[in-house]
Write a protein that binds this DNA or RNA. Structure first.
Length: 666
DNA sequence: GTAGGGTTAAGA
DNA sequence: TCTTAACCCTAC
């Protein structure tokens, strides 16, 4: 067998399946974008974002796809001037950077490149003007706007509007932002046509009725489809004979270069089943929960519970039960928003004046509501265009809800961290990729996230001085060993009130564990070599889960995960504690993933610039190594833009390289 | 943009 | 309190 084939064989089931999932969600995200269902788009990018922190079989076009997603995410948020993907750039400026990378990686005709660039810049100027940000408009105009003769008139006009502080002008209304988004999508699609994903093909081949690669058309439809798909999935698998499955697998695995044999998979499956059975003995409900049929729980609780069940076999039975109960409770009257359901659609905005504020608000609302949604599992979207005032009221609502549901939200965060990492459809993207889910003990970052997600919680989380942070950290650490994960509420300090954020620590840890994404890009896959570092009392990952499987063990050996900075609480007691200990053990640090790390998510609040530390993931280190191989040491900027680093500067790369050299990792 | 020394945050 | 990875600052 060829080397690559054996490499493929060495891939874990998770890597392969994540790759399928990745392809699928990229496909869906593009479809959603095409249908101007930007809410769904952000949901999908959020899923992708979470997916890629898990080990993924990184095939050749993965980076291209990631770039496209990055680009569209920035475009999608381009009318929100208060968001940033990379400070201090506006989303559209970030889009320009991504565009450069795209153009570098793929052969884009210079003419088209220039056109797209110019379109972005013009739109950015218009967005600034519409939003009354004249200084910024001027800056953009000076810094980016082409001096080409044919654009001189337009430039002059913009200059004049800036001078006169005019935020409305016929020119500004000529094109809507929604049109612009679609133009950018056209560009991406011209550049790279995403093939139909393997999973869809599988589903089609299974003869499953109603399966089409048609894009989602609206979030509500999406919901229906999603839930239908979820329901149907069970029946499909039930209907498929082993023989036909083997045939389909044969054909498709050949096409997609998956050379894990069917028999091998079967064996693994059997093995897993055995292990599952063992687990089942310990937590029979978990197994039950994995079935599609649900007890007559409220609708609202169902999907979330399934999410929990499908993914989080780490949850013990008792947790499971508790989780379900808690999730269902809040899905009361205020769990949905009647005024919602109006995504920004192209048709809507075409005729409208389409001021940036108008465009902005829905997304914000979405982001805000998502958290609620998450706990109620009723997807809702923000009102199409609500004035700031209504935002405020909705904010209050949110806060009220928060106080009511803080407990359940805690659970939700827990749910997310273990199960919904990859799959929560209700999870907002951008900021949302969870203000609260991310590193919570970073005031600045939390603050920025919070701001981004609609300022909902910002008041509660005023930045605290380092000292208090430290003390709160200590407190947490003290409590850590006593607290079970879901009980984070008591962990409250002025700096860190009891909120989902407190849970995020463990959440973070999980993410850390999963952060070492092994992209085996093409043939150059390099499993990260383990540095000879003492790995403390690495409690074995005894709580193996269906999702994490033995993968995580490999990862735990990675440098990032192996950093001695762990507070491994002695694993004693119930599953809570065991799991927690495991997270702590493999996490390396709770800060492996920070806000900026999200591939598609924006952060905001450029003002609060505080030193926050973000550990390097194995994946990033791999990129760096590859970059150095490709471009040579010292070309940090080139390397940075050649890989989808997020939140990393060239200097960061240089520093990391220095550290890697020091640690003899290279 | 990069190199290299200094500083800081956070785990041991 | 020590150690160290990540980050900052400044000179080039």
């Amino acid at each position: 067998m060829s080397e690559s084939a054996s490499k493929v064989r060495s891939l874990s089931d998770e890597q392969i399946i994540n790759r399928w999932g990745f392809d699928y969600y990229v496909f869906k995200a593009l479809s959603a974008f095409r249908d101007a269902d930007y809410t769904a788009f952000t949901h999908f990018t959020s899923i992708i974002e979470n997916l890629v922190v898990r080990p993924v079989d990184g095939h050749s076009d993965m980076i291209v796809k990631l770039r496209c997603m990055q680009f569209l995410s920035r475009i999608n948020n381009g009318d929100k001037l208060d968001l940033t993907f990379e400070e201090p750039k506006t989303p559209l400026e970030s889009a320009l950077s991504v565009l450069e990378s795209i153009c570098r990686d793929m052969s884009v005709p210079p003419r088209e490149q220039e056109c797209v660039k110019q379109a972005i810049i013009e739109t950015l100027v218009m967005v600034c003007l519409r939003g009354g940000e004249f200084a910024r408009a001027e800056e953009v105009l000076l810094r980016h706007f082409s001096d080409a003769a044919d654009l001189a008139g337009k430039k002059k006009l913009f200059e004049s509007l800036i001078r006169r502080r005019r935020s409305s002008h016929s020119v500004l209304q000529l094109s809507s932002y929604a049109d612009f988004k679609q133009d950018m999508l056209d560009f991406i699609e011209r550049l790279y046509r995403v093939p139909e994903p393997f999973l869809l093909q599988m589903l089609k081949r299974s003869g499953h009725p109603g399966v089409s690669s048609e894009p989602v058309t609206s979030s509500s439809q999406d919901r229906q489809k999603t839930s239908a798909a979820a329901e149907d999935h069970g029946s499909v698998s039930a209907r498929l004979s082993l023989r036909s499955l083997r045939q389909v697998y044969g054909v498709l695995s050949e096409r997609y270069g998956v050379s894990v044999s069917f028999t091998q998979l079967q064996q693994e499956l059997e093995q897993e089943e055995e292990e599952q059975e063992q687990e089942e003995e310990e937590s029979p409900e978990l197994h039950l929960a994995l079935t599609e049929t649900q007890p007559e729980t409220a609708y609202a609780g169902m999907t979330i519970s399934r999410l929990v069940q499908e993914d989080d076999s780490q949850l013990s039975a008792e947790e499971e039960e508790e989780t379900q109960i808690r999730i269902v409770v809040p899905s009361g009257p205020d769990s949905d928003d009647p005024e919602v359901q109006t995504p920004v659609r192209r048709s809507d905005t075409q005729n409208s004046e389409c001021s940036s504020a108008q465009i902005c608000t829905p997304a914000r609302h979405t982001q805000k509501h998502n958290r609620i949604v998450l706990s109620s599992d009723v997807e809702s979207e923000g009102p199409a265009a609500s004035p700031p005032a209504s935002r405020c009221s909705s904010r209050h609502k949110q806060q009220q809800k928060k106080s009511h549901h803080s407990e359940s939200e805690c659970v939700m965060m827990e749910v997310r961290c273990s199960s919904a990492q990859v799959s929560s459809p209700a999870r907002p993207s951008s900021s949302s990729s969870s203000p609260a889910v991310r590193r919570s003990d970073r005031d600045t970052q939390r603050q920025s996230r919070i701001l981004l997600s609609g300022d909902v919680e910002s008041e509660d989380h005023a930045a605290s001085p380092p000292a208090s942070r430290r003390s709160s950290r200590h407190k947490q650490q003290q409590k850590k060993s006593d607290l079970s994960v879901g009980e984070s509420a008591p962990v409250s300090t002025p700096a860190r009130p009891s909120s989902p954020a407190s849970v995020t620590r463990s959440d973070r840890d999980t993410q850390n564990q999963s952060s070492e994404m092994e992209v085996e890009d093409g043939g150059s896959s390099v499993q990260h070599s383990t540095p000879a570092r003492p790995s403390a009392t690495d409690a074995p990952r005894q709580n193996r889960s269906v999702t994490v499987s033995s993968e995580s063990e490999d990862h735990s050996l990675s440098p990032a995960a192996q950093t001695p900075r762990r507070r491994s609480s002695p694993s004693s007691g119930g599953a809570h504690r065991r799991r927690r200990a495991r997270w702590q053990d493999v996490s390396g640090t709770h800060e492996n993933w920070s806000d900026e790390e999200s591939l598609f998510s924006a952060t905001s609040d450029r003002s609060s610039k505080k030193y926050s530390r973000k550990m390097w993931t194995v994946q990033e280190s791999e990129w760096l190594k590859e970059g150095v191989q490709r471009f040579g040491v010292g070309h940090w900027e080139k390397i940075r833009s050649a890989f989808p680093f997020t939140g990393r500067t060239a200097v960061n790369l240089k520093d990391r390289w220095r550290t890697m050299l020091k640690l003899r990792l290279v």
